[in-house]
Amino acid sequence: MSDAAGLGAFLKARRAALDPADLGLPPGVTRRRVKGLRREELAQLAGISVDYYTRLEQGRAKNVSDAILGALARALRLDAGEESYLRNLAAPKRREKSAPQRVRPELQQLLDAIQAPAFVFGRYLDVLAWNALGGAVAFDFARLGERNIAKLTFTGGQAKELYPEWDAVAREVVANLRAEGGRHPGDPEFARLVDELSAASAEFRALWAEHAVREKAQGWKVLLNPVVGELRLRYETLRLPDDPDQGLVIYHAEPGSESERALGLLASWVAEAPLTRANIRSSGNCRWSGS
């Protein structure tokens, strides 16, 4: 999909997601055939002509001004991440061949020093580095040949066993992936990833068609760890100033919670027995007892 076509598809999806009643608009003389705002209604809210907005949705408008993008973002009630995505599609940067991403040794040292599950993801949600506890909480990255978060979520059976709230996780991952794609619109590697996921998963196809956008920032995850059982963890994401395509994700449990205790037990287990598939198999689904 071209940048212009992607912009049009995003505008159309966001327009369809708005409820006219929430915006104080009348129901109209004729019954609405599709949900969401009509083109003329959105154009009026944004203060632009219907003809110009139609050309935007059809991918026929070029050099969209900053003022119009701002007006569209307000009319569509976009959050900061969605507005950034809109602007990236409307004014894509010059594309250069993507160099392989690498994690600085100093960053790996920082990961190893963090006494909490942590990992670094890069372009298109590829996991680039992790610490020992980060490889024990969810996926055993050291043993996996595929370390893309979206692929792990949609093309392997382990994710549905790992996440009791898989539907919510899947929706979030797709929104994160679209936000990451907006950083480099038109990148053929990203297009190949989306095509692969679309071919492999009907669930991914359905969620991708919604055009939801969410920067990976912070939130909750509920996991069923094979060693210590259920973990309810909060995560925070820190973008690296010298490479905005890389983000450091750190998980932590609420102080005094059962998950904090379980995470401590998992850290002890990792320190005593390096995580391998054999360890997981021998542990079964039993909680670690410390004996």
Rank of each mutant, 00 (worst) to 15 (best):
D112E: 15
R33N: 06
E106Y: 10
G122T: 07
S283W: 10
E82P: 03
W208K: 03
L275Y: 03
E258D: 15
N63L: 07
A168E: 14
A209N: 10
D140T: 10
R261Y: 08
I68T: 15
F121C: 05
T237C: 11
A71T: 00
A168R: 11
E203T: 08
Y52A: 04
G156C: 07
L128Y: 07
R281W: 06
K160W: 01
L233N: 10
L86W: 02
F154N: 03
L162M: 14
A175W: 06
R94L: 14
R60V: 08
A206R: 15
A170N: 03
G28L: 03
R55M: 05
G122S: 14
A99F: 07
G70L: 05
G8Q: 02
Q108L: 11
W288V: 12
S198A: 13
W208V: 05
R31M: 09
Y235A: 04
R32E: 04
S282G: 08
A278D: 15
Y251G: 06
F141H: 09
E196K: 11
D51G: 13
A273S: 09
A150K: 03
V213L: 02
T54C: 02
A129E: 04
G135P: 00
L69R: 04
R234E: 15
A142Y: 06
N225R: 08
D245I: 02
F190H: 12
L107C: 02
L56V: 08
A113F: 02
A267S: 13
W208I: 05
F154W: 00
P100N: 15
P188S: 10
Y52N: 04
L224G: 08
E106H: 13
R178N: 10
K97Y: 06
S257F: 04
A212E: 11
G145A: 14
E210K: 14
D126C: 04
W130S: 09
A13M: 00
A136D: 03
R87P: 11
A262Y: 02
F139W: 15
R143L: 08
R77H: 12
R33A: 05
V249N: 07
S259P: 03
D242K: 08
P241K: 05
P164T: 06
W288S: 00
E272F: 00
D243Q: 06
P226N: 10
F10S: 07
D79E: 11
A179R: 11
G122A: 13
L25A: 12
R95S: 07
I48N: 07
Y163D: 00
F139N: 05
D140H: 14
R143N: 14
V34F: 09
G47N: 10
E106W: 11
G145I: 01
G247E: 10
V194N: 02
G81T: 11
E203D: 15
S65C: 11
A9E: 12
R214A: 15
R104Q: 12
D187T: 14
G36Q: 12
P185I: 06
G157F: 05
V50W: 00
L265V: 02
G256M: 06
A5V: 13
L23E: 10
G157V: 01
F119Q: 10
G256H: 00
R77A: 12
P100Q: 09
E236A: 14
E41P: 01
V173Y: 04
L197C: 04
P27N: 06
P105F: 04
Q246C: 12
E189A: 15
A4K: 09
A90R: 04
P20N: 01
E83D: 12
E165T: 13
A5E: 12
V120A: 08
S259N: 09
E82T: 03
A5T: 15
A46G: 05
V64C: 01
